[in-house]
Each structure stands twice: as C-alpha cells, then as structure tokens.
Amino acid sequence: MAWSWRRPAWGVAMFAALCPAAFAQRTQLVVYTALEPDQVKAYAAAFARSQPDIDIKWVRHPNGVITEMLLDERSAPQADVVMGVAATSLAVLDKRGVLLPYAPAHLENISAQYRDRKNPPAWWGMDVWGAAICFNTVEAARRNIPRPETWKDLARPVYRGVVVMPSPVSSGTGFFDVTAWLTLFGDDSGKGGGWQFMDALHSNVSQYTASGSKPCTMASTGDAVVGISFEYRGNTNKAKGAPIDLVFPREGLGWDLESLAIVKGTRRVAAAKLLADWASSPEAMTLYGRNFAITAQPGMAEALPNIPHDYERRLVKMDFGWAADNRDRILAEWTRRYGAKSESQK
C-alpha cells in the first residue's frame, strides 16, 4: 500500500529513535527453487521462525528451466539463492561461474558424497531424490497390463501408449533417468545400449511432461498406467489413497541431490548465508527427512512406508561432473530423437 507522511507525531519519532530495529527495512531474498509446493510451505515457515527479519520470494520452476534462467541472467543476476535444485544443474552453473562458494555453518555434518568437493563448496546437498515408477493397479487390471519389474520391461509392446515420463530438458528427474540409463546400458556418443533402450521406450511413451511429479500424478488419476517419476511424489500420492504401486526397477535407480547454492553477484550476501546456514542445520535436515529416505546429513530421515529399507543401495553410481560436462550433448541428442512428444512449456 502506498502512503506518506509530512511530520511524524512525537511518540512515533521518539520510538523510532529509541528502537531503530523496529523500523529497519526487512531483507527480501529471491530464491529460485524446484521444490514441490508442499515442501516449500514447511521449509519457509521454519526458516521464518529462525530469521523473522528475512522474507523469501520463492520463484518455482523445473530444474532445467532454472538452469537456463540462471545462465541467461549471469550478467545481471535476479536470484540470490537457489534451493532444492539438482546438483547436476548446480555443477553446470559452477563451471559457468554463476555460483558463490560458501561453507555453511553445519557443513561438517554433510556426507562428502553429497556435496561439492571444493573447499569452500559451490553447492551442497539437502537430500537425495530418486527414480520410482508409479503404476496404476486399477487401470492395469482393467487393461490386462502387467506390473513392470525392470526398466527394460517398459520397452515391451504391452506398454504401448500407456507410459508417461518427464522430459530431461526441463526436469531434473527426467535428466537423472536418462543419465542413469546411459550409465547402466551405455552411451557411446548416441550409439550405446542406453540410447537403444530409449528408442524402444519412446514407442511406448505417450508424452514427455515438463515436470518430474506430473507422470506420477497422471498415473494416480488414471490418466496414465505407468508414470516414471520419483519416490517423494509416489510415496505422498499413495499415502493419500491413490491406487498406485511404487516400483523400483531392479537394474538400479537414477537420482540427484536437492541442493543449495548462493548466486554470485547477489547484493544480499549476508542474508543468503543465513539461509544457507539454516538449510544445513539439523532442524532443516529433519524436515527434509520427513519427505525423503536419504538426507545429506546421515541419520536424519524417517522410515517412509512405501520406500524400501535398502533404497540407498539401489542407487546407480552417478558422476555429477560427467553429467555436467555432457549435459548439452545429451539433451541435444535426446531432443533430436524424442522431443516431438514433449509437453509444451507455458
């Protein structure tokens, strides 16, 4: 609301003189995030209790969109912090000089495998999110479609037109699916078994969605039988009563880290560091552990009812540096082969 005054009353002026903090301007941080909306609410409320003088303006987009935004904005940054964005995206941004290295207050609690190796790190992980298939049991029974147990099952003709998966161009989930398949089955610059598998899978995919959660939502509502998605959305939808089974294919699971980094060029460095300090704290890790089976600080995650106890052992050995170095090539090849079925981004 716009307003003005000409002369403050004596009492107001005196209070301002005695209590200048009460009249201090609040700091607003712009945070780019790919976190799910139901996650953001809890994290934002907890941070506000910790730092009541800092307001956060959340700008939410899929991982791929955020990556391109930050690259485009390098000369005039609009964001102060990126939070809940894929480590593979942050590795790309680090190589392009977009990030400001910072060691948060609780860095020593974070596993070495879940942070940038440099000291201070350019980014560090909050939690692991990984692949899961959401399989609608009601629609499958009605259409006599068997439950898949492996990734290669999804290339069989019985799944023709009933599979939905996220686009790796826009979605971090889609990107770790693709890089995991290339790791498991072979890349060979577009000629390997991973690409052959995706060629066969493409025949069965009805749509590549812009977000990683949408395929599971579509499977949950019966708009798809098979939704290649991630475990948080699957576990949450199933807990709400969706008629889905969660399938964790036997070959191994792609994954990435929801991570945090400070954007180089921010004019609110002090406030950005306070957010990073809180986001690395045991309090924050406990919140992440209510949503995900693996937190960057070990031992903070609760047992989730629909996630296998050996989930971490099922994760494919991912090389974030390789993924960052080969991202442009992989996405160009994927788009050339399969992009015609991608959902338009509004």
Rank of each mutant, 00 (worst) to 15 (best):
L253K: 10
F23M: 09
P104A: 06
F248V: 10
G11P: 04
D53Q: 00
W151F: 12
C216Q: 04
W10K: 10
A87Q: 03
S213F: 03
S171A: 07
N237E: 11
Q113C: 01
D127H: 15
L93Q: 05
G97R: 09
A76R: 09
W10G: 01
Q39N: 10
S342D: 10
S342R: 07
F135K: 06
T33E: 03
R7Y: 03
L71K: 14
A91V: 01
Y288F: 15
R115K: 13
P120T: 00
I56T: 00
A42V: 13
Y311G: 03
A293V: 02
D116S: 01
I145H: 12
V205S: 04
L257P: 09
Y232T: 08
A276F: 02
P20S: 01
W124G: 02
A13Q: 11
N119G: 03
V263K: 03
S281G: 05
A45G: 04
A46R: 05
C216T: 05
A323R: 05
N144D: 11
R329T: 02
P148F: 10
V205E: 01
D94E: 12
A155W: 15
A22S: 06
S229P: 06
I110Y: 05
W255M: 01
L18E: 04
G321L: 04
E139W: 15
Q297R: 13
A219M: 11
I330D: 04
L107E: 06
Y208H: 01
T27Q: 13
W10A: 12
V164L: 04
Y102E: 11
G172K: 01
V82C: 14
A242Q: 07
A303R: 13
K57D: 08
L287K: 00
S206K: 15
T33A: 06
G11L: 09
D116V: 06
G172A: 09
A293R: 03
V316C: 12
W278L: 04
W322L: 08
F176C: 03
Q25K: 14
K41H: 11
A242W: 08
R160C: 11
Q113E: 05
G252Q: 13
E231H: 15
D94W: 01
Q78I: 03
L315E: 05
R147Y: 02
A279P: 02
K341M: 08
F185L: 15
V158M: 02
P249D: 08
K273W: 10
V158R: 11
R233L: 09
P305D: 07
D188L: 09
P249Q: 14
M69N: 14
N235S: 04
R290C: 12
L201A: 12
G193V: 10
G241Q: 05
W124F: 14
A79C: 05
N237W: 05
A131C: 06
G193N: 06
V225L: 12
A141F: 11
R156M: 13
T236I: 06
A293D: 07
D55E: 13
R115M: 01
V40M: 13
A200Q: 15
V138R: 09
D187I: 07
T179I: 08
F23W: 15
V263L: 04
G289D: 07
C19L: 09
